[in-house]
């Protein structure tokens, strides 16, 4: 498999990576860049566990080829903590009790962050719609939706 050199920004740092051309962004993050916070739940674009922000948009990183990310800006769950400060969403999801096993949480947080970036004050229905692609088998979602709304209010 041919290897391609790509340049990209991940969580604010410039990176140069040699990556096999058939690898997904998810594989590259987890296996080349030691960013294992992003999870693999299906590798088929169906669960949202692998959600990252690609140029500001939430995407299933298992469905994006790494080589397509040349020049891109990627934010993963590890990038939500800045200067030791958690994103407000990370605190509100803790406070709301929206984390159980935690496997869906990184993807859930990225989808929620992307939502709040484009819509700082979403309704409950808008939150639900934004998170519909992030499956969670543990929590029943209600507390997660609450956490996103609380974060929105806290940021007003």
């Amino acid at each position: 498999m041919s290897v391609t050199r790509i340049n990209l920004t991940v969580n604010g740092s410039k990176e140069v990576v040699d990556v096999p051309s058939n690898w997904t962004l998810l594989q590259m993050l987890r296996e080349k860049m030691a960013l294992t916070g992003t999870k693999n739940g299906c590798a088929a674009g169906e669960c949202g566990a692998c959600t990252v922000m690609l140029n500001g948009e939430p995407v299933n990183s298992c469905m994006v080829l790494a080589v397509e990310c040349d020049g891109a800006e990627v934010v993963t769950v590890e990038g939500l903590v800045q200067d030791g400060q958690m994103d407000v969403l990370q605190q509100t999801i803790i406070d709301a009790g929206g984390v159980q096993c935690g496997f869906c949480t990184p993807g859930m947080l990225i989808s929620a962050r992307a939502l709040l970036d484009r819509n700082p004050n979403p309704s409950a229905d808008e939150v639900r719609a934004a998170l519909v692609g992030n499956l969670c088998r543990c929590t029943g979602y209600i507390r997660i939706v609450e956490a996103v709304q609380t974060a929105a209010q806290a940021s007003q």
Binding site: R30, A34, L35, T36, G37, T38, K39, N40, T76, V77, E78, L80, V81, M86, Q90, I93, I94, G97, V99, G102, F103, T105, P106, L109
Partner: peptide, 21 residues
């Protein structure tokens, strides 16, 4: 009381089996 395992889970630091190198 707040969960003891939660900060690592929201920051991506929590280690699940597939995360071990």
């Amino acid at each position: 009381k707040p969960r003891v395992d939660v900060r690592e889970k929201v920051t991506g630091a929590a280690v699940y089996t597939d995360d071990i190198q």
